[in-house]
Simulated assay, not measured.
Amino acid sequence: MKQLLTFAVVAGLLLLAGCNTVKGMGQDIKKAGESIEGAVKK
C-alpha cells in the first residue's frame, strides 16, 4: 500500500511538472490513457 501511494504521488508530481497549461494537461492525460489502453490490449 505504501508503494502504491508513493507511486501515485510521484506520478502526480511528474504530471504537474510536465503541464504548463490546461491544454498541455489535457494532452498528458490523453497520452496516459493511450498508454493504459495499449497495455490492456496486450
Rank of each mutant, 00 (worst) to 15 (best):
C19T: 08
K31P: 00
C19V: 06
L15H: 03
V10K: 10
A11K: 07
A17Y: 05
I29V: 13
L15M: 08
L14S: 05
V10E: 09
Q27K: 10
V40N: 12
T21K: 10
L14R: 00
G26K: 09
L13M: 04
I29G: 06
M1D: 14
M1I: 10
V40Q: 13
M25A: 12
V10F: 14
L16K: 00
L13K: 04
G18M: 13
G12D: 04
V22L: 15
L4H: 07
L5K: 01
K2A: 15
I29N: 03
K31W: 00
K41A: 13
S35Y: 15
F7I: 14
E37L: 02
G26A: 13
T21V: 11
L16N: 01
A17E: 01
I36L: 01
K23S: 14
N20L: 14
F7H: 08
K23P: 10
G24D: 02
V22H: 02
K2E: 15
C19F: 09
K23N: 12
A32N: 05
T21W: 01
I36S: 03
C19N: 01
L14W: 08
G38V: 10
L13R: 05
V40H: 13
K2R: 07
L16G: 01
K31S: 03
V9N: 03
K41V: 10
G38F: 14
L14K: 00
Q3H: 10
A32W: 03
G26M: 14
A8D: 07
L15R: 00
N20R: 06
C19M: 10
G33M: 03
L15Y: 07
K31L: 01
L13F: 01
A32R: 05
T21I: 11
